[in-house]
Design a protein around this nucleic acid. Sequence first.
DNA 1: CATCTAAACATAGCACGGCTATGTTATGTA
DNA 2: TACATAACATAGCCGTGCTATGTTTAGATG
Lengths: 211, 211
Amino acid sequence: MYPGVVARRRDPAVRTQLIERAAHMLRTREPITLRSLVAGTSVSTMAIYTHFGGMDGMWKALRQEGFTRLGARLAQVTPSADPVRDLTALIAAYLGNALDHPDLYRVMFDANFDLEDAQAADDTLEYLVQAAERGRRAGRYRADTTPLELATQSWAVAHGLVSLVATGPLPRPTLAHGPLLLTALFTATGDDPNRCRQSVKQGWQPDLTSD
Amino acid sequence: MYPGVVARRRDPAVRTQLIERAAHMLRTREPITLRSLVAGTSVSTMAIYTHFGGMDGMWKALRQEGFTRLGARLAQVTPSADPVRDLTALIAAYLGNALDHPDLYRVMFDANFDLEDAQAADDTLEYLVQAAERGRRAGRYRADTTPLELATQSWAVAHGLVSLVATGPLPRPTLAHGPLLLTALFTATGDDPNRCRQSVKQGWQPDLTSD
DNA sequence: CATCTAAACATAGCACGGCTATGTTATGTA
DNA sequence: TACATAACATAGCCGTGCTATGTTTAGATG
């Protein structure tokens, strides 16, 4: 009788509000439960089910949000004429993000790593790949290492260091090993040692108060 | 009247049984809850409280167990005349352990990293420190890097790589970057490039079917 | 060996967690 | 304006960790 009839649309603002509140509760170390999350908002517990399908979906969306924020932070790194400096700066930004939001960082790598949009993780890696690609074109790396490989290796080093510090047993000064590790990696990939040290030194400014 | 009286002692076998069952449930992906853990055993839920003080204490003990197993695996690495080979072999064993028991590995680095005995984590690190120390004495490394620093750096690299593979988004073949990363690190610390490559190649045999 | 103490142990029930069933309301098309 | 549909509110279910309480048992003492 009314064939093309379409019902009430869900309000995207509710979804955003819930994710932002969850991120804030994570930051302030409040336990995030179905009821505590909706408490203080104008919506009921059912909102979590209509917008996320349950708490699992909410955590998934929160992981997604973490990658989005990381991507935004990496985007703030302005490319220069020195790709090695840039790649270092990207890694430093990665560390800064993890240190500023350790709980969110941990959530990002939780539970089977299922994201709503797996592309989001690839997109952040792409920042590193791009810098590596420019480094390869600039002749700073040997051709037998692909940009993706170098980006992945840089990521592994950064993740290992920062996760052991931000959510692990190592003390914060351990981060000072970052430049040495990156220099070791870049040099092993073909960059000139002295030039590499310079580039890494210039790029290594982990801004720990941005967001 | 009976001043020095001592009451019934708790049975250590119960504690061991519960931890082993928890480890097994972790391996078989069964959800570990207070009730599901004691189900199938002859003990009641109260046993978790007398032996661990609650589920938190049980997880803590399980983390401890993880480090104990890791230590046992590292102990299987027999030292040779080549300390760089040995350090590489230790890292390979570390990776093998994490890949064999990814869930236990994740638990080990969960939640504020509080262990029953913080020494256990240091003890496993000590294996790496010892190898690094022997490497320094053999003149393979410069004196401006302490054995603890080199061990920590090796750990960070290994942890970053294996956690992104075992419980993260990277595919398993990514582990093949291990030798390159270690060679880069050891070379940057002063080892001769060719000799280092040899040592790493000899040490890199991640036995993934032990335990 | 009998006795008494204290802790291990079992049982029952609490508060809170995620989730679902069901009723109500708002939205947008016809 | 009428109606179909899905967003939304409410209430209650089951499973969770935990605690209160009663019972049992190991073991030192005399």
